[in-house]
Amino acid sequence: MKVYIGTGGYSNEDWLGLLYPEGTKSTDFLAVYSRHFDCVELNSSFYGIPGLKAFEGMARRSGGRTRFTVKLHQVFTHSRKPEDSDFDRMLQSPEPLREAGLMGPYLAQFPYSFHRTPENRRYLFQLAERFAGHELAVELRHGSWDKPEVRSGMSEYGLLWVSPDYPPVGGMPEPQLHVTGEVGYLRLHGRNQGTWWEGQSAAERHDYLYSRAELEGWADQVSGVQEAGEAEELYILFENTTQGHALKNIPVLRQALEARGIPVWQPEANEETGGEGRLF
C-alpha cells in the first residue's frame, strides 16, 4: 500500500520561520512545501475553481514530487446547485495534474447540515454519476451517514469514504479508518473540543497538536488496513495546520508507520535539516 502524507493547503503565512524561510514569497511556498511532503490537499478550489494555467503552474512548482487532492467548489457541496459549466470546469481544469501524474482524488467536503435524507442520498448518487471515472472522496460530517450500509453503497457506486478524526463532541462519525475502494482517505482535523463549534474560523477549530499516543493509534489502524489488503493507496491529510501543528505531527506519524513496516516517503536529510525554517 502506497501511503501519501500531507496537509490541508500550503498557503499558510504562519508557517514562515517554521517551514518557509522568513521572507519567502507566497508564490514560492509550493516549491518549498514539495521538498518536504508528497501530497497536498488543494483548498483554494473550494472558493474558486482554478483555470488550466493555474494548475499548470502548480504542477511545475511542485517539481513533479507532490500529489494533489482537489477539493470540489462549494457549489457542489454547500449550495448544491451546480450547473453543467461547473462540472466542466471542475473536471477539465486539473488536466495538467493528470498529465504530470500528480492528480489524486477529488474531495467533496459536505457540511454538518448535510444529513442522511432521501433528498441528500439522491444528490450524492447524482454526484457519483457526474464524476464517474474519477476518484471522488466524500467527507460526510453528520453522524447519520456513519453506517456500514452507507459505506457499502459508496463502494458500489465508486465513491471513497473519507475517514475523519474530529473532536469528541458527538453527532459526527467515529474516528475509524474505513476503505470503500482501492484508495483510502484519512483527514485529521484535530481534537479541539472547545473551538469546534464555537470557533470563529477554521484556524481556531484546527488549533490542535496531536500527542504521540494519538498518532500511534492511527498508525495501528493504517497497519490493519495494509494487513487486510483493503487499499492500494492511502492519503493522510493533516488539517491542523494552525501554528504549524501538522508540520510537527507528520514526522511523528511517519516514524510510527515505519516502525510497523509501512514505508512512507521521507524528505532528503539535507532538505529536512537545511536550515530553511525553525521546524527542520
Rank of each mutant, 00 (worst) to 15 (best):
F110I: 06
C39G: 02
R35D: 15
R67T: 10
S211F: 03
H142D: 14
T69H: 03
N43K: 05
Y208E: 05
Q266A: 11
S113C: 02
R61N: 15
K25S: 15
Y208Q: 00
P148Y: 06
S223T: 10
G274C: 07
Y112T: 04
L52I: 14
V264L: 07
D86C: 06
F76Y: 02
F37E: 01
T241H: 07
N12S: 00
S223Q: 12
F55T: 08
R254W: 07
E271P: 06
P96E: 10
L159W: 04
Y210P: 03
S223H: 12
Y106C: 10
D88I: 08
F37R: 03
K2Q: 13
Q176C: 02
C39I: 02
K248H: 09
R121V: 13
M103W: 01
K81T: 15
D84A: 14
R151Q: 09
P96C: 13
K53F: 01
S62D: 08
P168H: 12
Y235R: 03
Q200S: 14
S201I: 05
V75P: 00
G63A: 11
H206G: 01
V3L: 11
W161P: 05
E129R: 13
F125R: 12
W197L: 14
Q200T: 12
F29L: 04
L136S: 10
A219C: 07
F238S: 00
Q92P: 00
P94G: 12
E83V: 10
L188R: 04
E149P: 06
G194R: 14
D146F: 12
W218R: 04
S211K: 14
R67I: 15
A100I: 09
G229N: 06
F68A: 07
T7Y: 03
E119A: 13
E139Y: 00
R191V: 04
K147R: 14
T27L: 07
F114E: 02
I262E: 06
R121Q: 14
T242I: 05
V183N: 06
Q200H: 08
A128M: 09
L16H: 09
L279T: 06
H206L: 15
E258S: 08
R116P: 03
E13P: 02
L188M: 12
A269Y: 10
Y47V: 01
R187C: 02
R260D: 05
R141V: 03
P105E: 10
G158K: 07
S26A: 13
W218F: 15
S211A: 11
V32I: 14
